[in-house]
Nucleic acid binder design. Structure first.
Lengths: 149, 149
DNA sequence: CTCCATGCAAACACTTTGCAATCCG
DNA sequence: CGGATTGCAAAGTGTTTGCATGGAG
């Protein structure tokens, strides 16, 4: 896994220096897996542990961590860039289920799109390397509410 | 289809006034189907025909047209909101093929996700109403280039 | 004639940049 | 020590808002 030793090592391998700020930013993203924090939220959380940090550093660090592939950005079209930890064993990114009722965002880890990518290659001569999929609908709780109405 | 008569009628049905500005904005989006214009580009194009128009009007009109369902916004995570004409006969939005080589964006009209939505309902109790799917990869031209290298 | 819609400019919100001070290696 | 990194504040960017004027119904 990505423990602190690896974190420092990965940075150095890519020619970047290890700093406390970078560690703190990475920690916050990792400790809040599944919450899809945006840059500002990450900034606030890092400041709790490291109050001197500046916004610019957080933005620069997030860009750097994305560049080295340790995190990646998702866009839920709410005006914020949100971040998740990369899991190296994921060939493709997981899918998001976004509830139109309560706004919850859940994740589906299964890769359901393999056969579709074959169809796209056959029919459109387009070789898919990755995909981003968002399903909008109603989660179990909101479905129940709808029936009750 | 959405000719000018219908345009005015749809607006009025929803309680909005018909104005030249709204017509021009809609025209530009429609005349550039498939180009995924962003708000600024739409503004520039409208100004060619209607130079007095202000940016604010364009933004307000795009929001309004989206609200009444005549257009909809897509986000390719390039910092711009881009717009497409809605086709009423599309139950689900089409998919986008985004080429990592040349940046071209093509569209796949087939709805390939029906069976996947069933799986999601069975396995996750989530009822999908719509989806947004982007495939990143290489288009035919860029595939050829890669082989030639 | 009554509001809704427009144009302008100023305000916003998120992000990026310039630069001197600081710190990693 | 030397260049990468930081913090601060100022500058950018795309978009939104306030308000007086203008136009649709």
């Amino acid at each position: 896994m990505n423990n602190e030793k690896d974190f420092s090592k990965i940075l150095k391998e890519k020619g970047y220096k290890f700093t406390n700020q970078r560690q703190f930013v990475y920690d916050v993203v990792m400790e809040n897996e599944g919450k899809h924090l945006n840059s500002q939220e990450i900034y606030e959380l890092v400041r709790e542990k490291y109050p001197e940090i500046g916004v610019a550093t957080v933005y620069r660090t997030l860009a750097l961590l994305e560049e080295v592939g340790m995190i990646y950005g998702v866009d839920f079209e709410d005006g914020y860039r949100r971040y998740e930890i990369s899991k190296e064993d994921e060939e493709h990114r997981h899918h998001h289920l976004i509830c139109l009722g309560c706004g919850t965002i859940r994740e589906v880890e299964e890769d359901l799109l393999g056969s579709i990518e074959e169809i796209i290659f056959k029919n459109h001569n387009f070789k898919v390397k990755n995909h981003r999929v968002k399903f909008y609908g109603y989660c179990d709780k909101c479905l129940v509410k709808k029936f009750e109405l």
